[in-house]
Design a protein around this nucleic acid. Structure first.
Lengths: 170, 170
DNA sequence: GACTTTGTTCATTTTTGTTTGAACAAACCC
DNA sequence: GGGTTTGTTCAAACAAAAATGAACAAAGTC
């Protein structure tokens, strides 16, 4: 048997059960949205923590690297899902979660959905240009029909976003 | 110089430009939805093809494996995004794309979104049970608040789906 | 009933995306 | 100015997801 080592202050401090379950809830949630696991872990822990947490708190409690925490927090800030809190007693930055669904959905739509809709529209424009080179009139007709349909899809998508935000903002 | 080989019928037949661009459009599209690239390739080629295509057609034109084509078609069938067409002259199965946005959105919501909302609700139920073990009344209060909020999010999500489908079905 | 065609399954390989951690920068402190 | 604390960046390691293709099953053909 090995001699007992003196323990360096809770190296493995596991997250308490509630916290663990909420984190896992958000990890699953963000996967559906196509975001990395660490985003769910960080947001989840902030969501269920009464006090704001610093980057170091997140690293320690979630057992993730500083790199992940830093990148994750940046993305969450860009999404408007967390906000920074200055703490006069301490030069660390502390973070709080945005908890209004409206805000979260708005950020996601702005950062993740709108850019794709935009680039989709410009690709359709390119396609319409390329369709001019099609010789066979029947094929040309068919392609134009399909491109029109794509365009209608995009317009539906654009139309639906503000309505979505409105409904989620209640 | 090598003797000329007799060419085995278009081994590398690249997709024509329009087809290529449409496929790439859908590859990007499905990535946003968190679906595999092959799904976008297959659906994209069907979408822009005037005739129905068989599994072998897809393998040959997209240069993907039979395995990918088979699995991709299965998922697309589950999503209601393609339908099978029997061809009397031939014992292969041929496929056509569903092109109404309503149908596509409906399938995606049913297969990909609803199941997650359901499992989310059941996880919240578990969390509410676990919250009973929290001793500290202030903490208990806080956790209950947050769980209530999660529940409200889920209800908003459930509420928004039929409205989404309605708007996209126009 | 042997042979061919069509399509599926699933263990392995490949690709893609995420996390890590060491190096660095910035700001503060004494 | 040297030392410390806080946070960022990015190349490399790693993990997760997707694609491949060989083996197989089912059904048809002669």
């Amino acid at each position: 048997m090995q001699p007992m080592e003196n323990q360096p202050a809770a190296v493995h401090s596991a997250l308490p059960p509630i916290e663990r379950q909420v984190v896992s809830f958000f990890v699953d949630g963000v996967r559906v949205l196509g975001l990395p696991r660490s985003i769910g872990e960080i947001y989840g822990l902030l969501f269920i923590s009464q006090e704001s947490l610093s980057l170091d708190d997140l690293v320690e409690r979630l057992q993730i690297s500083k790199g992940s925490a830093s990148q994750g927090l940046r993305m969450l800030k860009n999404l408007g899902a967390v906000r920074e809190v200055e703490n006069s007693a301490d030069r660390r930055t502390y973070y709080q979660p945005a908890i209004e669904l409206k805000r979260l959905a708005g950020g996601f739509i702005r950062e993740q959905i709108r850019p794709h809709l935009e680039s989709g529209k410009s690709k359709i424009a390119q396609l319409n240009a390329a369709a001019n080179d099609v010789e066979d009139p029947a094929k040309r007709q068919f392609i134009d029909d399909r491109l029109d349909r794509l365009d209608a899809w995009m317009r539906s998508g654009t139309r639906v976003l503000p309505i979505l935000q409105k409904i989620l903002g209640q």
